[in-house]
Design a protein around this nucleic acid. Structure first.
Ligand SMILES: [Mn+2]
Ligand SMILES: [Mn+2]
Ligand SMILES: [Zn+2]
Ligand SMILES: [Zn+2]
Lengths: 136, 136
DNA sequence: GAAGCCTGTGCAACCGGGTTGCAAAAGTGC
DNA sequence: GCACTTTTGCAACCCGGTTGCACAGGCTTC
């Protein structure tokens, strides 16, 4: 297990520190996306800034990606092992209106849309709200 | 013109005050969505809170709708006259990465997507980033 | 027209999420 | 051990949004 964690970090060229291993473990332990506040609560000994910077480091190295689901607080989720955070890795995110959990729908690619002429497309953020499987 | 403004407010059961007429005028004068900070700058005599509450009032009465384009500040745009802010009135929003303007793509309905089984859909927020017709 | 009421406005202060500066602590290479 | 880099912790700040409260202005009732 510890092996897996270490390896996952090394793969992305992140030095394994105590905090980082702890945070990664949190990500591996649950499917739903995680926000800074979540981490603060879970590890009440660790400092907010450290956790914040850990998330930033993970994001820079594409171990996790950020999700803006419109709730006001950013959440983060593990990237898939093959993920390069390129346009083709973009996917839909789902926010449950009951439990407030956010999920990556990795198998739901973002559908094409027809922009008005003279608009050129760069990237798309698509967040679906509804009830998750636990809450319906 | 003044007539139009008054009428537009009455249609939505909003009493026409000086500030409200001014704000509505701002919305009618430009296509791009408007944020609270924009209004603060435009009317440097009017108070932030008043403008804030004006936006809230407009939104409650469905004269405008809010747009979270991920820039960190909410923007607002006029609803179409027939709009009831119902699911079928939802549409794609477009954020230009150069001029930072946000537009309603009223003619671009949000495409259907296939959720995993056991997830039920409620609403969708879709923001497209790219270059607008002025900036490309 | 005075008294009372409701709505709208202005100011100040607050809140939460995110971010930065800076110094101490921990790790690394020699 | 010593110099250097990286990571961590604390405090303070920033910005968008929001609330409490007092006052202004308009309308109502007598
Ligand atoms: Mn995701
Ligand atoms: Mn719109
Ligand atoms: Zn749920
Ligand atoms: Zn533009």
């Amino acid at each position: 297990m510890q092996e897996t964690l270490d390896h996952r970090l090394e793969e992305r060229n992140i030095k394994p520190t105590a905090v980082r291993l702890l945070v990664l473990k949190a990500f591996m332990a649950q499917e739903a996306a995680i926000g800074l506040a979540d981490l603060e609560n879970r590890f009440d000994h660790a400092d907010k800034t450290t956790l914040y910077r850990t998330l930033k480091t993970f994001e820079e190295h594409k171990l996790i990606h950020s999700i803006d689901d419109g709730t006001g607080a950013l959440k983060y989720a593990l990237c898939q092992e093959t993920c390069d955070c390129a346009p083709e890795d973009l996917h839909v995110h789902f926010l449950c209106t009951v439990c407030n959990k956010t999920f990556c729908l990795n198998d739901t690619p973002i559908p094409q849309i027809n922009l008005p002429t003279d608009f050129s497309l760069d990237s798309v953020n698509m967040v679906v709200k509804g009830l998750c499987s636990d809450c319906r």
